[in-house]
Design a protein around this nucleic acid. Structure first.
Lengths: 251, 251
DNA sequence: GTATGTTTCGAACGATCGTTCGAACCCCCG
DNA sequence: CGGGGGTTCGAACGATCGTTCGAAACATAC
């Protein structure tokens, strides 16, 4: 067999929902493969998919272009593998935290803040070996939401749909007086805040705590507070706001 | 003179803050130039900067590559011009609405909802000739926040900094019991929600009103409600949330 | 008509893109 | 020592990239 097509690549990329990859992914996989994934993760996060050349990835990984094509067959497959390596554990941690929350709460639904923490914390504190790599991993996940082309959109929807469904359900139960659609829209608003935060576009406008752990923690607290208030206000009757007061853009 | 370097291109690209381009930009500008901007706007929105070739733009515009380079000199300058054509009016409308709000309010600061409407409505209801083009224009503006490379980041910061400063000031005055940093972070959270909404990444997960005007209006109402609640909760003391309750991702 | 300056085009440049191919390499079992 | 499957590499492929250049097409003024 020329390429390990059926061993690792398709095992993690053909499953539509969160795949059951082992915790330490294939300890017997070659070092070149891991270095390629590391370099692809970093460069795709920094420059996007179309903006990153396969040669730039292989140079950063210290190998050759043909090695990348031997292991992954395609530039797009390399991106998928690099993405799944980071996103799948986050979504698994999210669902595990939600399971624990619901098991502990029994009948009555958990509080909104706890549900938000279960959803947001795994994304903000991704498991990583080196601490300074966390920022890049976040960017990869954020790029999955911001890169436009089809290879991204479909993959993102398949990866996150089960997570979204379960959390919207739980949030709707925690907010029984709000309609499900209100909760769903507010949930997607929260996803927007999270994506914008982990994209790093907030870093340049805001002084951050030098310690990334402490910074993640305070940002998580702020994020939970903001989103919880927004979710609770989702279906409220709104006081009259003069919309005719603004001129010039009502076309 | 070979190229109109000092007439239109630099007049809209060298000014750091919102440039004073006329409302109808240079009615005497060639039709080719406008068709190039239209095509660039559409393709950059759909496929991003690196993912769009100059030839794809010129083919969609029905001209030649050399025409694009004659008018703009560079692919990046073409993107800047296409971006500025849409973003500058939005930011001008934002500041005008804020001016009107503050002039009307007199001494006491305007309500948070009114400030948010002044900031959000121009972005959601961009002035446009054809209604179905609004979606693409939104994507262009959103891409300005999501595309990673430097040519975007610097441009976005320069374009939006004065807007951000003035709105954070006004919001801080409207929320005197909150610290300025709390308001600033919550404001950036709100920007994140807006960017995610206008990127179109919410469209696939949510049924939308068939009438884009009505859809924009209901989404604007939801957005204002969500962000106002989040902003008001920005500095509140937080009830104890057991953070040790989540396991598996605390690395 | 000619002259002048602006706009558009086709052709081509060198560079880089993703991908392919065959030879060399390595490691381990015979 | 010999051989074979799994890896890696350099070289090259055709395609496409952004940019440049000189000539044609154009309008306008004399």
């Amino acid at each position: 067999m020329e390429r390990p097509e059926s061993s690792t690549l398709h095992a993690v990329s053909d499953v539509p929902d969160v795949p059951d990859v082992p915790e330490v992914p294939e300890s017997g996989e070659s070092a070149t493969k891991r270095r390629l994934l590391d370099a692809a993760e970093r460069l795709f996060a920094e420059r996007g998919f179309a903006g990153t050349s396969l040669r730039a990835v292989t140079e950063a990984a210290g190998t050759s272009v043909s090695a990348a094509n031997y292991h992954f067959g395609t530039k797009q497959a390399l991106l998928r593998a690099a993405l799944l390596r980071r996103v799948a554990p986050v979504n698994r941690a999210r669902l595990a935290a939600l399971d624990a929350l619901e098991a502990e709460a029994g009948d009555e639904p958990p509080a909104v803040e706890l549900l938000l923490e279960a959803f947001l914390r795994p994304a903000l504190e991704m498991r990583s070996d080196s601490p300074e790599r966390v920022a890049r991993i976040r960017q990869v996940a954020a790029r999955l939401h911001t890169d436009p082309p089809d290879h991204m959109a479909g993959l993102a929807r398949d990866l996150f749909r089960p997570v979204h469904e379960r959390f919207v359900d739980a949030l709707a139960r925690a907010l029984p007086e709000r309609s499900r659609q209100d909760v769903e829209v507010a949930y997607h608003f929260t996803v927007g805040v999270l994506v914008h935060l982990i994209s790093g576009h907030l870093d340049s406008c805001q002084e951050r705590d030098p310690d990334p752990r402490a910074d993640s923690e305070v940002m998580l607290r702020r994020l939970i507070r903001y989103a919880a208030a927004g979710l609770r206000a989702a279906g409220e009757l709104q006081p009259g706001i003069g919309r005719a007061r603004l001129q010039g853009v009502t076309s």
